[in-house]
Computed example of a mutant assay.
Amino acid sequence: MRKTIRLLQKLVPELLQQLEKRYRILRTIQYNQPIGRRILAVKLELGERVVRSEVEFLKDQHLIEINSSGMNVTAEGEEIIDSLKNFIHQAKGLFEVEKQLKEVLRIENVVIVPGDLEEDPSVMFELGKVAAHFIINNIKDKDVLALTGGSTLKSVVDNMPSNSFYKGITVLPARGGIGRDLEYEANTLTATLARKMNAAYRLLHIPDSIKDEKVIHSIMNESSIRDVVEELHNVNVLICGIGRADKMAQRRDLSPEMRTYLDEKGAVGEAFGSYFDEKGNAVYTIPTVGIKGQDVSKIDKLIAVAGGKEKAKAIIASLSNKPNAVLITDEGTAKEILYIL
């Protein structure tokens, strides 16, 4: 296939450009259906005349249908999208980028989703879908999974199919909650994922914002909290997001003094309660109940799902030199990481 793609790129490069454009249009309709033509043009950042022409072509090929509520992808269109994924990956050279990124970060594996999340928000849906598929194919009976919170992890859980493929699975929140945006909290995502997987689960009913270690020690005397924390020692698959240090410090309501401290220490990324500088050193770890940065190396598999070029430095800082880590990200972010490194 690689040789064929190289020949096409040399002889008819416009063919591959047209293929990629129509694939992107189909995928955008799929993620937003039913969708009107004007909104589709805005999402794709294409002129309405171009979109009208392409939509008519896709309709004539029976790949989409149009009704009063908008456009929807047909069953044949869904099949085309699935069939083209590997070809698009190959045509854009993403297998090579995955290999390069794996080597420079020194991690177990990298999975790249075509597209740029900052330019096309619908890529978040594909990021969640690919991550959900990866998780389903890389867990086994009796695994103990732990999840952090966040909008990216919500996309993963939303795209997880309802199934009971595995037996004896347990799902746990990796930490407590921030106290806002309940739908993104680790407890909420844990319960939703467990129901979809027909798995057992426990929740951690404790704010993640408690910074007094004496208070944390006192809370640990509660059997319901202590039991969950004990179970977290058995986690062998951790699924997490990665955030920019400055944004996560703001979300967690860290004091102005602490934010200044993080700036002075050069913190650029946050994951699993630790703030990392550009060299991957943990410059600060939040006192918390749950999985901490120092626990991560003891876990069999760390699956980090993160996208957006603004997070490139945060990803490098949080994941570099973690041989148990898998990164699932978008094409734009992957290339930005390689550019930085």
Rank of each mutant, 00 (worst) to 15 (best):
102 K>T: 15
75 A>I: 15
111 V>H: 07
219 I>L: 15
110 V>K: 02
52 R>H: 11
107 I>Q: 00
62 H>I: 08
208 D>H: 14
53 S>G: 04
179 G>L: 07
140 K>Q: 14
15 L>D: 04
207 P>W: 11
327 L>C: 05
215 V>D: 01
55 V>R: 01
28 T>Q: 06
253 D>E: 13
112 I>M: 05
246 D>H: 11
102 K>L: 08
330 D>P: 08
326 V>D: 01
37 R>W: 00
20 E>I: 15
95 F>H: 13
218 S>T: 15
216 I>Y: 04
329 T>D: 01
211 K>H: 13
213 E>A: 07
310 E>C: 00
298 K>F: 10
84 L>S: 02
152 T>C: 07
222 E>N: 10
15 L>R: 08
61 Q>N: 13
255 S>G: 09
41 A>F: 08
112 I>A: 01
190 T>G: 02
97 V>E: 06
79 E>W: 06
191 A>P: 05
190 T>S: 03
301 K>H: 10
168 G>K: 08
40 L>N: 04
242 I>P: 02
41 A>G: 12
262 L>N: 01
258 M>T: 11
222 E>Y: 14
164 S>V: 10
326 V>K: 02
196 K>V: 07
264 E>F: 08
299 I>W: 01
176 G>V: 09
103 E>F: 05
210 I>F: 09
148 T>M: 06
84 L>F: 12
106 R>S: 13
215 V>N: 00
13 P>Y: 06
131 A>C: 09
142 K>N: 15
263 D>S: 12
8 L>E: 04
140 K>H: 13
226 R>P: 05
238 L>W: 07
115 G>V: 01
162 S>F: 12
275 Y>M: 03
28 T>I: 10
193 L>H: 02
60 D>C: 05
330 D>R: 06
276 F>E: 03
50 V>E: 12
49 R>D: 14
340 I>W: 09
25 I>F: 04
57 F>T: 15
149 G>V: 06
128 G>M: 05
221 N>K: 15
334 A>M: 03
325 A>W: 04
211 K>M: 15
227 D>K: 12
318 S>Y: 06
162 S>R: 13
226 R>E: 13
35 I>G: 01
204 L>S: 04
89 H>M: 15
19 L>Q: 10
226 R>S: 14
95 F>P: 09
338 L>W: 05
45 E>L: 10
69 S>L: 14
198 N>E: 11
199 A>Q: 08
151 S>F: 07
111 V>E: 09
111 V>T: 11
164 S>C: 10
328 I>D: 00
182 L>K: 14
121 P>A: 06
268 V>P: 02
16 L>A: 04
189 L>M: 02
274 S>L: 07
304 A>Y: 03
258 M>I: 14
